[in-house]
Amino acid sequence: MITTALYLTIAMVVLAAVLNLYRLIKGPDEPDRVLAIDTLYINAIALIILLGITLGTRMYLEAALLIAVMGFVSTVAMAKYLKQGSVIE
């Protein structure tokens, strides 16, 4: 029963990632594309955690934390770039 729920969850997260890719490509302006990339990072984190649960290892949790930190920093950098025109003052 739990494996069925796990595979169903993986399918839903993959569908969400595909929809985020669509918004990334067809986004009307740059802030929408930045939000699509941010949500894509979240979907990648979810997929990595689900893979770790499926394989029964904790190694993938460290990779998910690394992607979370990189996603946060890149989102903040992109938001600052869109607002001020430069990242480093």
Rank of each mutant, 00 (worst) to 15 (best):
G27M: 08
A79T: 13
T54H: 12
E62Y: 15
I25G: 11
I49H: 03
I67P: 00
V13N: 03
P28Q: 15
A36S: 15
V34W: 03
N43S: 08
A17S: 08
L55C: 07
L40T: 11
A11C: 09
A77D: 00
L55Y: 15
T9G: 05
N43D: 14
T39G: 07
Y7A: 07
Y22D: 14
G71Q: 02
L61Y: 12
L55A: 13
A64D: 12
M78Y: 04
L40G: 10
I48M: 10
T39K: 15
L15P: 01
G27Q: 05
P31M: 14
T4K: 15
I49V: 07
S86C: 02
L15C: 04
T9E: 13
R23Y: 13
L40K: 13
L47E: 02
L51S: 04
D29C: 09
G27H: 09
R58Q: 14
S86W: 02
P31E: 14
A46I: 01
L35P: 01
I88V: 14
V14T: 10
V14E: 07
L6W: 00
V87W: 09
I49N: 04
G85H: 01
F72T: 03
L15G: 13
T75G: 07
S74D: 06
T3S: 08
P31D: 14
N43W: 04
A64R: 13
A79I: 14
V69G: 06
L50P: 11
S86R: 13
I37P: 01
P31F: 14
A46R: 02
L47A: 02
V13S: 07
L61S: 05
L51K: 03
G85P: 01
T39N: 13
D38W: 02
